[in-house]
């Protein structure tokens, strides 16, 4: 495989050899002028420039946006409104009921996202853990099955959404199965509960292979002799799992939890293509709220969208820090 990669690299590089030689001349001059320190700057410059313009500047600008009003997209055209956008987002008569809030769509989206995260992350960790444990056994065709579970990870979210929309529609495959089992066919995505469950299930289906791989790598790094010693002592399998597998898998499990949480909070593409946020607002999630408030709705409000995105970023930061602290404590034990 390495030989193949080398050849692939060479093939990609070949047309650029000429370009590289042309770049070499002016850079030699620059190197004589500035020495090694200057060269480091040259090598870093393109990446950092793109980085700065398209990540760091927007990150800083986001705070400015969240404190301005109006529908204009360019910052100089926008009037300063202070914390009004945040006040509007957080203005609720009764926080347990989204309808009493001024921005009820935001609270619906926030609640939906919270429920989604709880169910999706638990399902994701459980399913990928079971799959990783199974793939870690000595079974025939392990490489094949590892690939099988990884396959949907590569599919685009739009493709994933459309595949499942097609299966869940009225004349779809799921109804064929349901009817053959003797139940009534459903229009699955028109039902609030089923549509939500579909969003959870489909996004788990699409990404579990990735987490399975991380967990599998962790399982394979656990020394075999630990298990052999446990077997010789006649330790029960449940105890072996709790006392050997889980603690030694800790770091990988923490990575999986953090990544799954962070991605789950940002759920958008598959769910948007699958349900479009419906029926009603039952699968409206935060990213879709930000997208629609900022760009898609008739009364677009970039300031409100920016404020919502900062609140979401706050949640992400808190989640990440809490998770890191937890995993560090788990490691120390």
């Amino acid at each position: 495989m390495t030989a193949f990669a080398t050849r692939l690299g060479a093939a990609v590089a070949a047309p650029f050899a000429l370009l590289a030689r042309a770049i070499d001349l002016p850079l030699r001059g620059w190197q004589r002028l500035t020495g090694m320190g200057g060269m480091a700057a040259v090598f870093l410059a393109p990446n950092l420039a793109i980085f700065g313009v398209f990540v760091l500047i927007p990150l800083a600008l986001n705070f400015a946006y969240s404190m301005t009003g109006g529908t204009d997209i360019l910052l100089p055209d926008r009037p300063f409104v202070g914390a009004d956008q945040y006040a509007r987002l957080l203005d609720c008569a009764d926080y347990s009921r989204a309808v009493t809030c001024r921005e009820d769509a935001f609270w619906t989206a926030a609640r939906n996202t919270a429920v989604f995260v709880v169910f999706q992350v638990s399902l994701m960790v459980a399913v990928s853990m079971i799959t990783a444990l199974i793939l870690n056994r000595k079974i025939a065709g392990r490489g094949f099955f590892r690939a099988v579970f990884f396959f949907p990870v590569l599919l685009s979210p739009v493709v994933v959404g459309l595949i499942w929309r097609w299966i869940l529609q009225r004349q779809g495959l799921l109804n064929l199965i349901v009817v053959n089992l003797g139940f009534d066919p459903q229009v699955w995505l028109n039902d609030r509960l089923y549509a939500f469950a579909a969003a959870v299930g489909v996004s788990t289906w699409a990404h579990m292979g990735f987490y399975t791989l991380i967990l599998l790598a962790g399982l394979q790094a656990i020394p075999r002799d630990l298990y052999e010693a446990a077997e010789m002592d006649g330790t029960k399998p449940g105890r072996v799992f709790r006392r050997i597998t889980l603690p030694l898998l800790g770091p990988n499990l923490a990575v999986v939890l953090v990544l799954a949480l962070i991605r789950s909070v940002q759920i958008f593409d598959e769910a948007y293509v699958l349900t479009g946020g419906g029926p009603g607002t039952s699968t409206l999630f935060l990213t879709q709220y930000i997208y629609e408030t900022g760009f898609a709705s008739l009364l677009r409000n970039p300031g409100l969208a920016a404020a919502a995105s900062i609140l979401m970023a706050g949640v992400l930061v808190v989640l990440t820090l809490a998770q890191l602290a937890l995993s560090r404590r788990a490691e120390r034990r």
Partner: peptide, 8 residues
């Protein structure tokens, strides 16, 4: 999603 608006 966090930098969608300013990136735009």
């Amino acid at each position: 999603p966090v930098i969608l608006v300013p990136l735009y």
